[in-house]
Amino acid sequence: MKIVIIGGTGLIGSKVVAILSGKGHAVIAASPKGGVNAVTGEGLEDALAGADVVVDVANSPSWADDDVMAFFTGSSRNLLAAESQAGVKHHVALSIVNAERMPNSGYMRAKVAQENIIKDGRIPYTIVRATQFMEFMAGIGQGSVVEGAIRLSPALIQPIASDDVAAAVAEAAIAAPLNGTVEVAGPEQFRLDLIVGRALAAIGETRAIVTDPKALYFGTELDDTSLVPASNSKVRLGKLRYDDWQRQ
Results as ranks from 00 to 15, higher is better:
Glu171Asn: 12
Gly148Asp: 11
Asp120Trp: 15
Gln142Tyr: 05
Met137Lys: 01
Ile118Tyr: 00
Asp120Phe: 13
Asn78Met: 05
Ala138Leu: 00
Val169Asn: 07
Asn78Ile: 12
Met137Tyr: 03
Val169Ile: 15
Ala138Gln: 05
Asn104Trp: 09
Gly141Met: 07
Glu171Val: 10
Arg122Gln: 15
Val92Met: 05
Glu100Thr: 13
Val112Met: 04
Val88Phe: 06
Ala172Phe: 06
Glu147Cys: 05
Gln142Thr: 12
Gly106Leu: 04
Ile117Tyr: 10
Ala149Ile: 14
Gly87Pro: 14
Ala99Glu: 00
Leu152Met: 07
Leu94Gln: 13
Ile174Asp: 11
Asn104Ala: 12
Ser153Tyr: 09
Ala149Lys: 15
Ala149Gln: 14
Gln85Arg: 13
Val169Glu: 03
Gly74Gln: 07
His90Thr: 05
Val169Met: 09
Ile117His: 08
Ala70Phe: 02
Ala130Met: 01
Pro124Gly: 10
Tyr107Thr: 11
Glu135Ala: 12
Val146Trp: 07
Ala99Ile: 01
Ser95Tyr: 00
Ala173Thr: 02
Ala155Cys: 04
Tyr107Gly: 02
Asn104Leu: 06
Gly121Trp: 08
Glu135Phe: 04
Phe136Asp: 13
Leu94Thr: 10
Gln114Trp: 11
Val68Asn: 01
Arg151Lys: 02
Asp164Arg: 01
Ser144Glu: 05
Ile157Tyr: 01
Lys111Ile: 03
Leu79Gln: 03
Ala138Tyr: 01
Asp67Pro: 06
Ser105Thr: 11
Met69Asn: 07
Ala138Asn: 01
Thr126Met: 09
Ala86His: 03
Ala170Phe: 09
Ala86Trp: 02
Ile160Ser: 02
Asn78Phe: 10
Ile123Gln: 03
Glu100Pro: 00
Gly87Tyr: 14
Ala93Asp: 13
Asp163Phe: 00
Gln142Trp: 07
Asn78Gln: 07
Ile157Asp: 01
Ile123Arg: 04
Ile157Asn: 07
Met108Ala: 15
Leu94Phe: 14
Val68Tyr: 07
Ala173Cys: 03
Ala113Asn: 02
Ile140Cys: 00
Lys89Gly: 05
Arg129Phe: 03
Asp163His: 07
Pro159Glu: 12
Ala168Tyr: 06
Val112Lys: 05
Ala138Thr: 05
Glu83Val: 00
Ala93Pro: 01
Ile127Ala: 14
Gln114Pro: 04
Asp67His: 13
Ile157Trp: 04
Met134Ala: 06
Asp67Thr: 09
Met134Asp: 03
Ala168Asn: 14
Met108Cys: 15
Phe136Leu: 14
Ile150Gln: 13
Pro103Ile: 08
Arg129Tyr: 01
Ser144Ile: 06
Gly148Pro: 09
Ala86Gly: 08
Gln142Ala: 12
Phe133Pro: 00
Asn116Glu: 15
Ala161Val: 09
Arg151Gln: 06
Ile117Ala: 13
Met134Tyr: 09
Leu152Cys: 04
